[in-house]
Simulated scan of single mutants.
Amino acid sequence: MRSDQENNTVYKEAWFDDSLHRVVSFFDVATTTKYDKGSSVATVNLIFIVNVPLLKPNILHRGDEEIRRDVEQLCALPRFNFTMKSFVTGFKNVFANFDGYLKRDQITFRDLHPLHVFSIGFDLLYNINDC
């Protein structure tokens, strides 16, 4: 993303080069709900695009379940006020909040071998006075 003029942002398409990358991940803050006495709960999704055979080269079948299990095991223990609540699979489900991707032909991030797309959903409890 770059800004040529004030209030005029030009976006560039993001590409996943499956010959170079094993994993791309990023956070999406879906919703924030007021909680109590200055504290809030945000729904945060950690989104993954992975190259299955580069991550699990010794598995002869599609190892998407094994990769998700590894990530879920890492995320199961609450850390830094993040509590795992869910996981989502499938391109349309994972990128439901990113309608720009869903309106295109979906060639870039299709959930077809060798790529796998999934997200882990968290609740994040935070105090707005501690930010």
Rank of each mutant, 00 (worst) to 15 (best):
K12H: 13
A76D: 11
Y35H: 15
T9C: 06
L125R: 10
R110G: 15
F87A: 12
K85N: 10
T108D: 13
S86W: 07
R22L: 11
S3D: 06
Q5I: 02
D130K: 13
A42R: 04
R69E: 15
I120G: 00
L20R: 15
I107G: 04
N58F: 03
F118C: 08
R2T: 05
L125H: 08
L46D: 02
E66T: 10
L102F: 04
R110V: 02
V10C: 07
R2Q: 06
F87G: 08
P57W: 04
D130H: 13
I49H: 01
S19P: 02
D17M: 10
H21W: 12
R68W: 01
I47C: 03
S86K: 10
H116G: 05
V23E: 04
T43N: 11
T83C: 04
N127R: 10
G100Y: 11
Q5C: 07
E13G: 06
N51Q: 10
Q106R: 13
D130R: 11
V71K: 06
E72W: 03
E13Y: 07
K103H: 08
L77M: 10
V24F: 08
V24K: 01
L77R: 11
Y126N: 08
V10N: 11
L20A: 14
C75N: 09
R110S: 12
N129C: 07
E65W: 04
Q5W: 07
G121T: 14
S86V: 00
V71W: 01
H113Y: 14
D28Y: 04
N45L: 08
T31I: 06
D18L: 03
D99F: 05
K37N: 14
A76C: 04
Y126L: 12
F95T: 01
K37T: 13
G121L: 06
I120M: 08
L115E: 05
E65G: 12
L125F: 07
E6T: 12
F27Y: 15
N81F: 02
D4H: 11
V44W: 01
K85I: 12
F27A: 10
V50G: 01
V10S: 12
Y11G: 00
R110Q: 12
G90I: 05
P57H: 03
G38E: 09
F98N: 09
P53H: 05
F87L: 07
V24H: 03
V41Y: 04
F98P: 01
D111I: 05
